[in-house]
Computed example of a mutant assay.
Amino acid sequence: MRGKIDNKAFVLEAFDTLFNKRDYEAAKRYWSPNYLQHSAHIAPGREGLFDLVKALPSELHYENALALAEGDYVILHGRFSGNGQPRALIAADIVRMADGVLAEHWDVLQDEASKAESKSGLPMFKDHFPE
C-alpha cells in the first residue's frame, strides 16, 4: 500500500503520462480497472478512455493551467491541442480518487475562442489567445 499521495500531483502526472507521453502501460497504474466514465464522448471504463486517446492524432497535447483538490476530488482546467479538430478544446476535468487511483471522471469541454470571437476580450486559457 502506498503512503499518502498528493492528489493534484498524481492526477497531473496521470494526464501527462496518458495524453502527452501516450504510455498506456504506465497509465494503467493511474486509472482504476473499474474506472467510471461520465463523459458523453468517451466509451465506458479505462479502456474506453485509452482507446479514445489511441485514436487521436500523435500531436495531441494536454496543458494544465489550474489544479484544485478537495478531499478525493481533483479539478483541472486545461487545454487539449493537436486533437485533429480546427480548435483546441478547453476542459474542466473533475476526477474522483479512490484507493490511490483515478476512479471516476466528469468533464466540461468547449472549443477555444479566438480574440475576435471573445465578447469579453479575455482569453479562455491562461493569459493569451491561441495563435
Rank of each mutant, 00 (worst) to 15 (best):
L66T: 07
K28F: 05
D16Y: 02
S114Y: 09
G3Q: 11
A98F: 03
V53K: 04
D127Y: 09
S120K: 00
W31R: 10
H77P: 06
N64H: 11
A98P: 05
E70R: 04
L52R: 10
F80Y: 12
L68E: 08
A14K: 02
L56P: 03
N20F: 00
L49T: 07
L68Y: 11
M97H: 00
I5H: 12
H105C: 02
K115P: 08
D99T: 10
F10D: 01
M1R: 10
W106K: 05
F15I: 14
F50C: 07
A69Q: 13
L12T: 02
F80K: 04
H105F: 10
Q110T: 09
D51W: 09
W106T: 01
L76C: 09
I42Y: 03
W31C: 05
E63C: 02
D23M: 10
V11T: 00
R46H: 07
E47S: 10
A92Q: 13
E70A: 10
V74T: 07
V101Q: 14
D127A: 11
Y35W: 03
E59P: 09
L109S: 08
S58Q: 13
A9F: 07
G78H: 02
F15H: 08
L68V: 15
T17W: 04
S81P: 03
G3V: 06
Y73W: 13
H128G: 14
A65Y: 01
N20D: 03
A103G: 03
L76S: 00
M124F: 06
S58F: 12
A55R: 14
L36D: 12
A91V: 11
Y35R: 00
A27R: 03
A9Y: 00
G84W: 06
R2A: 14
R79F: 02
K119Y: 10
F129Q: 00
V53T: 06
S39T: 13
A113F: 13
A103R: 06
K21D: 05
H105M: 07
L68H: 08
R22K: 05
V74K: 05
H38W: 03
I75T: 15
V53A: 04
W106Q: 04
E70C: 14
L18E: 06
E117Q: 12
D6V: 03
R2Q: 15
Y62P: 04
G78K: 01
W106H: 05
S120F: 01
L102A: 15
L89T: 09
L68M: 12
S58R: 15
L18M: 02
G100N: 01
K8L: 09
D99M: 05
L52M: 15
D16C: 03
E47Q: 08
H41K: 14
G3W: 08
L36I: 15
A67S: 12
A113I: 11
K4G: 06
S58G: 09
H128E: 15
D72K: 07
N34L: 08
F50T: 02
A91L: 11
F10Y: 12
L109T: 08
A55G: 14
G71H: 01
V95A: 13
G121T: 07
E25K: 05
E70G: 12
F19D: 07
T17F: 05
Y30S: 06
E117T: 04
G3S: 05
D6N: 10
R96N: 06
D99N: 09
K115E: 15
P33T: 13
R46V: 11
L89S: 13
K54T: 11
E117R: 07
V53N: 04
R79G: 01
T17C: 15
